[in-house]
Simulated scan of single mutants.
Amino acid sequence: MTTRVLQGRMLSTAGWLDGELHLDDNGRIAAIDGRLAGAGEPARYLLPGFIDLHVHGGGGVDIMQGGGAVSHVGRTHARFGTTSLLATTMTAPRTELERVLAALGQHSAMRATGSARVLGVHLEGPYINPGKLGAQPDDAVAAVMAEIDYYRSLAPLKVLTLAPEIAGHHEVIRRLSADGIRVQIGHSLGSYEDGVAALQQGASGFTHLFNAMTGLHHRAPGMVGAALAHAEYAELIPDLLHVHPGAMHAALRAIPRLYCVTDSTAAAGMPDGEYQLGSHTVTKCMGGVRLADGTLAGSTLTMDQALRNLVQIGLPLAQASNRLSLYPADYLGVTDRGRLEAGAWADIVVMDPQLAVQQVFVEGECLELANA
């Protein structure tokens, strides 16, 4: 078996090492040969590939378009260091969700050349509170297990966002959690007590923390308070638009394994203009994506920029990297991604000292970034 060798400062599971990372012919890391990193600035960093658990689109394409949209989105985000992701749906009528999930089930079985690996689906809605839609279309319904089981037969469902205060949703949380699906609290008008109860029933995270949920007040802590007081995991959008850096620091201090997502739309990696987000038309302008009434509607964020933003607000690079790779992998129970160690998939982001992407490897494939 032949091996390829990458050299640089590596964020391994043993910490920062200077040395060589060996890739085998099967897309795995064969070995790591390094010494404890020195004090000087390296020529380049080797980081675990980013894992984005909330992706609606990119490169002008929306996941809800179905067909081959997911491959195009996967290639777009791979340019920015995302080596695996969850294709994320929007709230929509059942017939539309059936169509999209059937397409995602077909296209997630195999990884397209030059694309990030699609690990499965994040079903964001339709089981949300119609009074807290955010940028979701007005097609919210109460969850029914028979319907969810049908959706699961169409595509690998890994994460489901719901509002726990809706009648019947506690039983759904218990059932899905017992089956290993990560149930997240989001798009909710529920109270602090509703959030605590949902966590006790098996809910495991919070969708885009702070956004589209009841906020923190010292006499009514809300869903944000439940997350800050009790959550082990939650997702956060670090585009510096959705959440103020001060609130980010509060969450980083309170939630041990807070991880970051892009909540990216078709506008990610594209110029200013109009794009689709489910049934909505959204506008990219001044670094954000909004509905006509000004509501934030997903983001244009990419994971390499998320890393730079975290470092900019004061996180050490290793901690920032863990929140984009190790923690989301652990959240899904994936043990061979999100880390640099022998036997893991060779999902690697090579970055210069300014944290600009130089190379991306997905399962050992070195991507052609200029042509992505």
Rank of each mutant, 00 (worst) to 15 (best):
M1G: 14
G8D: 04
G8N: 07
D24T: 09
I29V: 14
A31C: 08
L36S: 13
R44C: 14
D52C: 05
L53H: 03
G59P: 08
G66W: 00
G67A: 12
V70S: 09
R79P: 06
T82V: 13
L86V: 02
T89D: 07
E98W: 03
R99Y: 04
L101S: 00
Q106I: 15
H107I: 07
S108H: 09
R117F: 11
H122A: 08
K132S: 09
L157E: 01
E165M: 09
A167L: 06
R174Q: 14
R175A: 12
G180L: 01
G180M: 01
I181H: 01
I181C: 05
I181L: 02
I185V: 12
S191A: 11
E193W: 13
D194F: 08
G195Q: 12
V196Q: 14
A197P: 00
Q200A: 15
Q201H: 13
Q201S: 13
G202S: 08
A203H: 06
A203M: 08
G205F: 01
F210Q: 10
F210T: 07
A212Y: 07
G225S: 02
A227S: 02
A231H: 04
L236N: 04
D239E: 07
L240C: 03
V243N: 05
A247G: 03
A267G: 01
P271V: 07
S279R: 13
M286V: 01
V289C: 03
V289N: 09
G298T: 11
S299G: 08
M303V: 11
D304H: 10
Q305L: 13
Q305P: 00
A306T: 09
L307I: 12
L315A: 08
Q319K: 13
Y331W: 13
D336V: 11
R339N: 10
G343V: 06
W345Y: 15
V349I: 12
M351Q: 05
Q354K: 15
F361W: 15
C366A: 11
C366K: 15
L367M: 06
